[in-house]
């Protein structure tokens, strides 16, 4: 079968089938994108309410109006500065999973996404 013969033999149903396939594949792609996490995120919760969410892979320094400055760099996050008295959150340094908890401010800065979700808790 040469090229011309193939083109001649294509019917309306062939094209319809291709379009249908393309649509199914596109739908599948959209579905997978939305149902699986795109990557790890830095999430800031205050008093148990989700306030901010940042992508872990994008380096940045964020000043929160709650008196805390976060630095996100190389898939890690730390509290760069805090106006709280004991500054335990700053002393904790960089984290790549788990959470930094600031008790006086009732702020939780945590990394969510595939890696951290494997554990259901940590004792110690």
């Amino acid at each position: 079968m040469n090229q011309n013969e193939i083109i001649k033999s294509i019917t309306f149903f062939d094209i319809a089938l291709f379009i249908a396939l393309l649509a199914v594949n596109l739908l599948a792609l959209v579905y997978v994108t939305f149902s699986y996490p795109a990557g790890e995120k830095v999430v800031v919760e205050i008093n148990n309410k989700l306030l901010y969410s940042y992508t872990l892979s994008v380096d940045r320094v964020v000043e929160l109006k709650e008196g805390i400055t976060l630095e996100i760099k190389d898939d890690k996050v730390r509290v760069l500065w805090s106006d709280c008295p004991n500054k335990l959150c700053m002393k904790q340094g960089w984290i790549t999973k788990g959470a930094i908890i600031c008790l006086p401010k009732r702020i939780v800065i945590k990394i969510t996404g595939s890696a951290t979700d494997k554990l259901d808790g940590t004792t110690g």
Partner: peptide, 8 residues
């Protein structure tokens, strides 16, 4: 359930 033990 998977519970991690912290490295001291």
């Amino acid at each position: 359930w998977k519970i991690g033990i912290r490295a001291p």
